[in-house]
């Protein structure tokens, strides 16, 4: 395993994956922000795990931007002592993203939760069930189309039914 320094890591990603990887402006609390095309995600993840020392997948989450859905990965490296942020864009209707559970088992429940909350399907996931909401629940609550009502509003509605 070749240990990459941070200065070498991002150019190495860019040279290896070309236009499928885009390094976005970084923020001070992460090592870097990298946008990856959906179909190259697993390859990039494998590269980061094997060559980039990112052995710990800390967080998989999603954001509903209405026009698209963004899936975020935060990876920790013990050598670089920091988090790398990977972002992937997918379509809002029937979103599909390849699963990274084959690389980090720890991503398993994070992906289940993202499916549960945002309706993102992770292809290749061994067991993509809901994790927090009950089986058979119809909604994905963190979508912006799912409206949260103030309690008083619900009360008024119930009274008028």
């Amino acid at each position: 395993m070749t240990d990459l320094t941070l200065a070498a890591l991002l150019p190495a990603l860019e040279s290896r994956f070309g236009p499928d990887v885009k390094v976005l402006p970084s923020r001070k609390e992460v090592l870097g922000v990298v946008q990856v095309k959906v179909d190259r995600l697993v390859e990039v993840a494998r590269f980061l795990h094997d060559q980039g020392t990112f052995t710990h997948c800390a967080l998989v989450s999603g954001v509903d931007w209405i026009e698209h859905i963004e899936v975020l990965y935060h990876l920790w490296s013990d050598a670089l002592k920091g988090y790398l942020e990977i972002t992937v864009e997918t379509a809002p209707e029937d979103p599909h993203v390849p699963s990274v559970t084959s690389i980090w088992r720890g991503a398993n429940w994070h992906e289940r939760e993202t499916w549960d909350m945002l309706g993102v399907r992770f292809d290749g996931h061994p067991d993509l069930r809901r994790v927090l909401m009950p089986e058979g629940y119809r909604f994905h609550p963190l979508r912006k189309s799912f409206e949260l009502h103030e309690p008083e509003e619900l009360e008024v509605k119930a009274r008028h039914v």
């Binding site: 927090l132 909401m133 609550p141 949260l148």
Partner: peptide, 15 residues
Amino acid sequence: EIGYLHRGIEKICEY
């Protein structure tokens, strides 16, 4: 199996 105590805190935060 978890979720028995799910209160949707992430969603409520948006409001």
